[in-house]
């Protein structure tokens, strides 16, 4: 048993082997990355479509709110119990987790994409149409770039949601940094638990900062000028993307 958290974190033994910190971090990122990719493939196009056509918006709003209320842990366990018996390979635990992660990640991406496109200045769209642009050009060259800040913040919310929930996935016998939390708990090894918790928090923070930096690179400076707070709209209602962790 390790004695202190720093002791556990600095013990070379924990930094090697198939169950070491690098391997588990990689496993965590693999699962999270896969889930995020799938969620993007689903969320962005559908969000763009809804935002562009204005159809199906009411459905999206209601669905997103309902999903926020779902207790992740319960849903994950139901998925594992339902799906695992039908899969023989070592994907038996990965697939249910992946499904749940995607399920949780799609709503913030989708609603933010939709809200972002929807909120694009109607005059800009009108001007583009007046200049003879086609619907697809308007979507890709006007609406998408203008909606990018909101879309990226939706992706950030989704990524954090995924990383947090992927931690829990360790409970259903899966790898990742959550392993340390769950194993530490089972072995009453607080140092291991806390060390794992610190690693998870650090990973989440790193991803957050990375995505924030990415947003700064990608978003047109014409959009990022910091408008005075008095004129910018309140943050919560439409675009609230709190991660239900």
């Amino acid at each position: 048993m390790s004695t202190s958290i720093t002791g556990w974190l600095t013990d070379p033994v924990n930094w090697s082997g198939p169950d070491g910190i690098p391997a588990q971090t990689l496993a965590h990122l693999e699962l999270s990355g896969m889930a995020l990719a799938i969620a993007l493939v689903i969320g962005v196009p559908v969000g763009l479509l809804i935002g562009h056509t204005g159809r199906g918006a009411f459905l999206v709003g209601g669905l997103a709110n309902a999903l926020r209320a779902l207790p992740t842990l319960g849903v994950l366990m139901i998925a594992v119990l339902l799906i695992t018996p039908h899969i023989a390979s070592d994907l038996a635990f990965t697939i249910p987790s992946l499904i749940v992660l995607v399920l949780l990640a799609v709503p913030p991406i989708l609603t933010n994409t939709y809200a972002g496109v929807f909120a694009v200045d109607a005059a800009a769209v009108d001007a583009a149409r007046g200049m003879g642009w086609r619907g697809r050009d308007i979507l890709l060259r006007v609406q998408l770039p203008c909606a990018l800040p909101l879309i990226l913040s939706g992706i950030r919310a989704a990524a954090l949601q995924i990383i947090a929930t992927a931690t829990v996935a360790a409970y259903v016998s899966l790898g990742g940094l959550g392993r340390f939390l769950i194993d530490g708990l089972a072995q009453s090894d607080y140092a291991q638990m806390a060390g794992g918790a610190i690693l998870v928090a650090a990973l989440a923070l790193a991803v957050e900062l990375l995505l924030l930096g990415l947003a700064r690179l990608l978003v047109s400076p014409g959009l990022t000028r910091r408008v005075s707070r008095r004129t910018s709209p309140p943050a919560v209602p439409a675009s609230a993307t709190a991660t239900a962790q």
């Binding site: 926020r68 366990m77 829990v168 939390l181």
Partner: peptide, 29 residues
């Protein structure tokens, strides 16, 4: 938003054994 998120997050504490509805998840699992 905060209220709905809280209700969902509380159940996570079941993994540590703090009793609330999340305890039903671990039991059932």
């Amino acid at each position: 938003v905060a209220a709905v998120s809280n209700v969902s997050i509380v159940s996570m504490a079941a993994l540590l054994g703090v009793p609330q509805l999340g305890s039903l998840f671990t039991q059932g699992f």
